[in-house]
């Protein structure tokens, strides 16, 4: 069928898979941003740097201690999440009462420091991380490398687990309540500041987890998150930060759109998400899933 209309299916599905993988990262990262913003009222500009730190943690643990990928998948997010907790305790918690703008600037500054230090120590060219699963499946219409399939599935599971954790568990209910009205939740005897710290740690851990998953696909380099976080901002504007499911759907959807653009008109593939953002702003300024807050 595809041959009839002159489209090589291998290439098309190859790009769609790439799009899906990018979408998986968009979804995971925008989810973390949304969760953090909900609780802290801070747009975490450090998110890209923390994603990079996740990949670096896995790479360093493999190189120095020979820690396998599967262990890193658990350890790296914990380590980076704990660093996030320290940053929150030291810096972020002191600026919650200020305008959003200061949180944005503070986390931007922290991202510069982190990325600069990594560049200084390890240079900016980056290093490869060996793929933990080799081989793949021939699906007839395309070849699917096993690891890439795993990344998409893992991202879906992670996103849905986060959704379940926030929307369906008791801790999640506390979290949502504290987002709505922290003072009242505090009056019920719940330690809201600790909840905020925990949220930041979780959001950062999510970014680091995405980084570990990305390590075998991309080069592990200090600047791997710099441009990504800017695209994720556009994703967040498109989806709106009001709904968890919205972030997931928007992330994957935009990845697919990017993949399609790469196939049909490659020069626009870098900019298509921003064009979509402009269109959404024109038609539905609050974002696809956003409530005006």
């Amino acid at each position: 069928m595809f041959e009839l209309i002159g489209i090589p299916p291998q290439a098309l599905f190859g790009q769609l898979l790439l799009g899906l993988i990018n979408g998986a990262f968009y979804a995971m990262l925008s989810l973390g941003l949304a969760v953090i913003f909900g609780m802290l009222n801070v747009i975490n500009f450090t998110h890209g740097a923390q994603y990079m730190m996740g990949a670096f943690a896995a790479w360093l643990m493999l190189g120095i201690l020979d820690v396998p990928f599967w262990a890193s998948l658990v350890l790296a997010p914990i380590i980076v999440g704990l660093i996030g907790v320290v940053l929150e305790r030291l810096f972020l918690k002191r600026i919650y009462h200020l305008d959003h703008l200061y949180g944005f600037l503070l986390t931007f500054g922290m991202a510069l420091v982190i990325e600069g230090l990594f560049q200084w120590k390890w240079g900016s060219s980056g290093a490869p991380y060996p793929s933990p699963i080799s081989g793949g499946y021939n699906l007839g219409f395309m070849f699917l490398p096993t690891y890439r399939g795993f990344v998409v599935l893992a991202a879906l599971v992670i996103c849905l687990a986060t959704w379940y954790g926030i929307e369906r568990t008791k801790l999640g209910a506390y979290l949502r309540a504290a987002t709505e009205n922290p003072t009242l939740v505090r009056a019920f005897g719940i330690n809201v500041p600790r909840l905020i710290t925990l949220t930041y740690g979780l959001g950062v851990g999510l970014a680091a987890l995405a980084g570990v998953l990305a390590a075998p696909i991309q080069q592990v380099s200090p600047l791997m998150g710099t441009n990504l976080v800017l695209v994720v901002f556009a994703v967040v504007v498109i989806g709106g930060m009001g709904s968890i499911m919205g972030s997931i759907v928007t992330g994957f959807g935009l990845g697919l759109i990017e993949g399609l653009t790469k196939f049909f008109y490659p020069p626009a593939s870098n900019t298509v998400i921003f064009v979509v953002m402009a269109l959404v702003l024109l038609i539905k300024p609050a974002g696809l899933f956003g409530q005006t807050k």
Partner: peptide, 28 residues
């Protein structure tokens, strides 16, 4: 005209995203 349709921190993110779009445009 597009960016002022959102306020506060979204405004910053939108301008940032547009600038990144212009950057990618300039690369090509």
């Amino acid at each position: 005209a597009l960016a002022i349709r959102r306020q506060g921190i979204y405004f910053a993110m939108i301008t940032l995203a547009f600038a990144q779009m212009i950057y990618f445009f300039c690369v090509q």
